[in-house]
Nucleic acid binder design. Structure first.
Length: 247
DNA sequence: AAACTATCCAACCGCCTATAA
DNA sequence: CTTATAGGCGGTTGGATAGTT
């Protein structure tokens, strides 16, 4: 009736049928059937595959397999440094819109780009954003402490809402600057492109400085504390991304 | 040599949207 | 107009493999 070894193997891969559909890794035979289906009927109408090709896979699974693996126009092999620079550039502009990014990289899938970005860059950025969050909390704590002291000394009270709003504003500013990046990165030469992007992030650094000035204008005068918090955000680009190319 | 860690990547899931019924 | 379905997308998982201690 059942071969225990097969069952164990299938359970570990989640291959046991779910409402009649097979799951898990595709076999060579399944690939053959799917390719044959596309050859005859073309792409799309994925839910017909089970009926017309005799595959026990649901439409989503078939589409995914075709799009990410079987499509003949797929580019195999490692992501090139050129492709990597495009990924970084477009991710800075669009964020996690992988399918949008993939349209600029012929033969690469959104899944591939997503996987690449996550393994190469996500951790660093997460670490930094964690640090950013911690810095923010630390800032808040110290502000509260400092406020008490100021009140005791009868100084002007600080506008905490304004300070926090300014910190929130940083992200918005970065987003707006991405429009500039789009124009800057249109140059043909690779060197020029890298130079432009590096300049762009230098500009962002200047924006950070103007933000610090604004914060100072609120009457908030603990520079070493501010820099500690704000530098983390900038490090996200400098340390997390390889923005500083060797030109 | 073994244990541990990091990276790679195929495939899944849930959510969303567009379109057909 | 509403509902059902297919397809698309981004996030996540987990096994395989490579690299390090």
């Amino acid at each position: 009736m059942f071969d225990l070894r097969t069952m164990v193997g299938h359970w570990s891969w989640g291959l046991m049928e779910d409402e009649g559909w097979r799951k898990g890794p595709w076999t060579a035979e399944e690939d053959r059937l799917l390719m044959e289906y596309v050859r005859i009927y073309g792409e799309g109408r994925w839910n017909s595959v089970a009926r017309l090709a005799g595959l026990k896979r649901n439409g989503k699974s078939c589409r995914l397999r075709w799009v990410n693996y079987l499509r003949p126009d797929l580019k195999r092999g490692q992501i090139t440094p050129h492709e990597e620079s495009i990924i970084l550039e477009l991710h800075a502009r669009w964020g996690n819109r992988w399918s949008t990014i993939a349209r600029s990289l012929p033969g690469r899938t959104d899944n591939e780009i997503k996987n690449y970005w996550r393994t190469h860059f996500k951790k660093k950025i997460k670490d930094n954003s964690d640090a950013n969050g911690k810095a923010k909390a630390r800032l808040l704590r110290r502000q509260q402490f400092h406020q008490q002291q100021l009140q005791q000394q009868q100084f002007n009270p600080m506008d905490m809402n304004k300070i926090m709003a300014l910190l929130e504003e940083r992200q918005d500013k970065n987003n707006n600057n991405n429009n500039k990046l789009e124009a800057l990165s249109s140059s043909v030469s690779e060197t020029e492109k890298k130079q432009n992007i590096t300049n762009f992030y230098s500009q962002t650094a200047e924006n950070e400085q103007s933000l610090i000035s604004e914060l100072n204008n609120t009457g908030f005068v603990v520079p070493e504390m501010l820099n500690e918090g704000l530098d983390v955000g900038w490090d996200m680009e400098l340390g997390g991304y390889p923005w500083q190319w060797q030109l």
